[in-house]
Design a protein around this nucleic acid. Structure first.
Lengths: 207, 207
DNA sequence: GCTTTTTGGATACAGTCGTATCCTAACAGG
DNA sequence: CCTGTTAGGATACGACTGTATCCAAAAAGC
């Protein structure tokens, strides 16, 4: 075989170029030629390593999903296994909000993909809008916490988790839109987590 | 003057055709020719009543904002002025969630616009991502309710409202994505509203 | 009835898009 | 050294984009 080229490496390079464009100029700005220019290669190279534009978009989505998953797991693993349920929720939900520039860019790209999938069946088939595995995981964790008495018995774990995830997504959207800073969003999120995990404070507290 | 044509009526027709395309096939499917076809007129007519494509998009956004505003106000006015604060929150936040087919289509179009504005400066200038007047209104209402003792003194009205609006937006997103039905979303929303307005239930309730 | 202005049909233009094709360097195996 | 495969440069095709232009019906004012 001549030339020895690492195909996976090449594809990774092109995929990252795609995500850079998608997150800064939107999915509508993503074209084969733009990707080539961003990656510093010729159009033919992009065609050579990806059969389709759709294959390219799929690759971008897969990379994005991998990044977000990595971020959540990394955050959740910062403190060891002995993490409290509150700690897990802090970490996981906190990882959803865009904090640094990179996670902001990734969230932008993710939003672009999600929105595109709402009206594009080809993207929708890629599972962007699929069920959230995180929701099940957090619900189980919260149920356990409820048995342990860490949260009130009148709470509904599934509803609480669904609400918290929707809240995190809504906050993310507002951060991306510039209506709120990351810090403001984190404050709101922590406020609600605090209410969930410290039900004693609620209502008529003796003073 | 010849022919007597109502320009505003014509523009409304074209704007609605635009929104129909945007909500079903996405903003990327919106082209001058597609709008013409959807409205049943020729390309020239579209050009005649709108100088630009940008003007067309601006008009679509304005119409969309007007519709959502109308929906919120209509819902809020269903019960008369004697509405409780809880009733106002139910109505206003409930109006955000896509309930029937039309509001679902409008939410889709709105999401498309919002996402486009995140990476398109021309759209961003149209104020899609501007500050939310609803937030201030609801915050004031909630503050008053707090003074009246309808919600706990330990609640922070601004944070609560910000959280509720973010929650409604996040829930809307999940409904559009098909992860949740409208009813499920409404249930989650009401659950949280119930917690806010009935703090007595929280924690150790006597039984 | 003629003119003038509005309304819109038909067509063209310069770009950009995804994709396909042709062809040539570059290098491994014989 | 020669051959055959791989990696990529150059170019082209047809479709579609927003915009511009040209011109013809239609009707109001004179």
């Amino acid at each position: 075989m001549p030339k020895q080229v690492d195909h996976d490496e090449r594809r990774r390079l092109l995929t990252e170029a795609l995500l850079r464009i998608a997150s800064t100029r939107g999915l509508k700005a993503v074209s084969m030629r733009e990707i080539a220019a961003e990656a510093g290669v010729s159009l033919r190279v992009v065609q050579y390593y990806f059969t389709d534009k759709q294959a390219l978009l799929d690759s971008g989505l897969a990379e994005l999903a991998a990044r977000l998953d990595r971020r959540v797991k990394q955050r959740a693993a910062v403190a060891a296994e002995g993490l409290s349920t509150r700690g897990v929720f802090d970490a996981v939900l906190g990882a959803i909000l865009p904090s640094d520039e990179q996670s902001r860019l990734d969230s932008l790209a993710w939003t672009a993909y999600y929105t595109a999938a709402l009206t594009d069946s080809a993207l929708a088939a890629s599972g962007v809008t699929g069920p959230n595995a995180l929701e099940d995981f957090l619900t189980e964790r919260l149920r356990a916490a409820q048995h342990a008495g860490d949260i009130g018995p009148d709470r509904d774990p599934r509803t609480e988790v669904a609400g918290l995830l929707a809240l995190a997504n809504g906050l993310t959207s507002s951060v991306l839109g510039g209506q709120r800073s990351h810090e403001a969003a984190a404050t709101i999120l922590n406020y609600h987590l605090g209410r969930l995990f410290e039900p004693g404070i609620t209502g008529s507290s003796p003073h």
